[in-house]
């Protein structure tokens, strides 16, 4: 066990990988939250079409492996695009990966937010109606804030899952934390030190996130 190969430069290299992992997770969770909100509203709407589209979206993305979705987006989708536009198009691994993970997260978040909205007392909807608020105002100002508060803990879990799942993008050549660690390992013929350090970075990142979420939860509890 020779940890001396983890020089300051190597450590910075791993940190840069961690930065990429974090970037992937942050963008994906934001995209997922937006998609999830739209998805949940579509799932709960009386519009049959919106309902079915959202249901298919959720089932397809929850029912296939994320690694398959990422690989499909990077390797199979370009072929489909080429068939349509007639010439090859290069997919950037990072962008493709973020889109794939964001779409996947959106499916899970749809169900999460749907349960959050269902958990809001029916009287809150009725009170908003009697005051003349429009559907959009009602959702934005009254219902969704309460729904998000209810689902904050599982939403944070989703974020943590995404930080870990961002490692799947190493398979399509994105140099995030996982890829950085295996690259260092391959260069020095020693995997134990870089993988250990990378694991610790994942762990520390996620501990910071769960701590932050507890602070936010306490703050939101003022209205309890």
């Amino acid at each position: 066990m020779d940890f001396s190969i983890i020089t300051w430069d190597i450590f910075l290299y791993l940190l840069r990988g961690a930065g990429t992992s974090l970037l992937i997770a942050v963008i994906a969770v934001m995209a997922g939250t937006v998609l999830g909100t739209l998805g949940a509203i579509a799932r709960l709407s009386h519009n049959k079409f919106a309902n079915i589209v959202a249901a298919i979206y959720v089932e397809v993305l929850r029912g296939t492996p994320m690694l398959m979705q990422i690989t499909f987006a990077f390797l199979a989708l370009p072929a489909i695009i080429r068939m349509i536009v007639g010439h090859p198009i290069r997919f950037d691994p990072l962008v493709t990966g973020i889109v794939a993970i964001g779409l996947n997260s959106g499916a899970y978040t749809t169900e999460l937010i749907r349960s959050g909205i269902n958990g809001v007392d029916h009287g809150q909807f009725e009170a908003a109606d009697t005051l003349g608020l429009s559907y959009k105002q009602k959702m934005k100002m009254v219902i969704l804030p309460q729904a998000f508060k209810n689902i904050l803990p599982p939403l944070v879990s989703e974020f943590i899952t995404l930080i870990k799942d961002s490692s799947l993008l190493s398979t399509i050549g994105v140099v995030e934390l996982m890829k950085s660690a295996t690259t260092v390992g391959a260069n020095y013929y020693a995997y134990l030190p870089p993988l250990t350090v990378a694991s610790c970075i994942y762990l520390i990142l996620n501990l910071i996130i769960s701590t932050c979420s507890r602070v936010i939860e306490r703050r939101l509890a003022v209205s309890d």
Partner: peptide, 23 residues
């Protein structure tokens, strides 16, 4: 719905369970 929203505002409604916005 748009008209209903307008018509409603001439009436105030008070519920058995208050239904104040919790947030």
């Amino acid at each position: 719905p748009k008209q209903a929203q307008k018509d409603r505002t001439v009436m105030g409604f008070v519920f058995q369970h208050f239904n104040l916005f919790a947030n």
